[in-house]
């Protein structure tokens, strides 16, 4: 047949709770965004319900995958997490029990 029917692929995102992020579910093949929304709802929300449903034409998604990340994660950047600051908890506990004077810590420096 010469008049082959061509639809588009839409990626489907569902938000389940007002405070949750839209989560990617899967994709559907549809002739229009309206049809993609109908199919997305039927396929991915019929058990769970939803507070919001997004469909995005796959072509509109720009992406990075594993290859793009290589070389970007070489350094351990613990200062981006709270990893480096765990010692603070002990310090606070210590000074609650042994408050500093106006001159600073009572015995010079605290033991770490």
């Amino acid at each position: 047949m010469s008049d082959a029917i061509s639809f588009d692929v839409y990626e489907v995102f569902v938000q389940l709770e007002p405070m949750s992020a839209h989560q990617h579910q899967f994709n559907v093949l549809a002739s229009s965004p309206e049809m993609a929304l109908e199919l997305g709802y039927e396929n991915f929300c019929r058990r769970t319900g939803a507070v919001s449903l997004w469909v995005v034409k796959r072509d509109a998604i720009h992406k990075w995958t594993q290859d793009n990340f290589s070389g970007k994660e070489r350094l351990a950047k613990t200062y981006r997490t709270t990893e480096d600051y765990k010692y603070l908890k002990d310090k606070w506990r210590h000074y609650r029990e042994n408050p500093m004077t106006q001159e600073g810590p009572r015995n010079g420096r605290t033991a770490d």
Binding site: D3, I5, S6, F7, S31, S32, P33, M35
Partner: peptide, 9 residues
Amino acid sequence: RRVLAMTTP
């Protein structure tokens, strides 16, 4: 399917 395909923006 044909009719739906015609609604493609």
